[in-house]
């Protein structure tokens, strides 16, 4: 079976700044991969490259063996490549329900209907109301996104991602800004996803990384410097120097 997603020798620079250097990796069905690295390492940039938000200076991306480097953002989404944003990008003036409903309707190809009331379509409603209640957002369904707290908005990012039923899901720090007692809902939602999709999560919170990931990629200064199991990561010398430092020591101490 071919990989769901592959990056082959991808590089990108802004002006003189090399932000992504010769990155190679593969995501296979069932993968749960964490992408970690210090601030400014180029993690978000890598997601932007994968989704087509920015074009690589060099290198290629493949999905299921087909090259996707030059196809448009919406075409990639239609192939099942879905992301969430680190800084939320939502339909701010629409309700929470509408935000999720739009994703569902787009997936179901019914956004070209002109005269039916959108959010209350029964088949759409059932789905968004389930997604929202899983994330504890059901009571906010008819509130405008712009009126909500930042942590709640973060969860809507995830809700939209789930609504698109991805084959490859890229989560850019889904837990950042989410209140501590809400954060477990994120992992629960990910655990409910079909086993055969690939999930890549950028995350700084190492506890979350250990609970989620079976494989860890470490990015530093645009290069993938390590790939391995979560346990190997904390042991690896270079990773500790580049990033983990205190965390690994703290873990060892306990």
């Amino acid at each position: 079976m071919s990989d769901l997603l592959e990056a082959r020798a991808v590089s990108r620079s802004f002006g003189g700044l090399q932000v992504t250097c010769d990155v190679n990796f593969k995501l296979a069905a069932g993968d749960r991969v964490a992408l970690i690295g210090p601030n400014g390492a180029g993690k978000t940039t890598l997601v932007n490259l994968i989704t087509g938000d920015i074009a690589p200076s060099e290198g290629q991306f493949f999905m299921g063996g087909d090259e996707i480097t030059d196809i448009s953002i919406p075409d990639r989404v239609r192939r099942g490549l879905v992301r969430t944003f680190q800084t939320t990008r939502l339909f701010a003036n629409l309700t929470v329900a509408d935000n999720v409903a739009l994703a569902i309707m787009q997936r179901k190809r019914i956004t070209r209907r002109f005269f039916s009331s959108a959010t209350e379509l029964p088949e759409v409603r059932a789905e968004w109301s389930e997604i929202l209640s899983h994330l504890g957002l059901d009571r906010l369904a008819y509130r405008k996104v712009i009126e909500l707290a930042y942590g709640q908005q973060r969860l809507i990012e995830l809700a939209i991602g789930l609504a698109l039923r991805p084959k490859v899901l890229l989560l850019d720090e889904p837990a950042a800004g989410v209140p501590h007692d809400e954060a477990p809902k994120i992992l629960e939602a990910i655990n409910r996803l079909p086993a055969d999709i690939a999930v890549l999560m950028i995350e700084h919170d190492m506890d979350l990384v250990f609970k989620f990931a079976r494989r860890v990629l470490v990015l530093a200064a645009g290069r993938l410097i390590f790939e391995g199991s979560p346990d190997d990561v904390t042991a690896d010398h270079e990773v500790r120097r580049a990033y983990l430092g205190s965390y690994a020591d703290a873990r060892r101490a306990t």
Binding site: V77, R89, A92
Partner: peptide, 30 residues
């Protein structure tokens, strides 16, 4: 007719595009 039209999936999507067109593209909208 317009009242129904602006509440339809198509109309709602247009309002979404107005709010954030990158987000719209990232859910698969051309």
């Amino acid at each position: 007719l317009l009242q129904r039209f602006v509440r339809s999936p198509f109309g709602l999507m247009c309002r979404g595009i107005k709010d954030d067109d990158l987000r719209a593209r990232m859910i698969g909208v051309s």
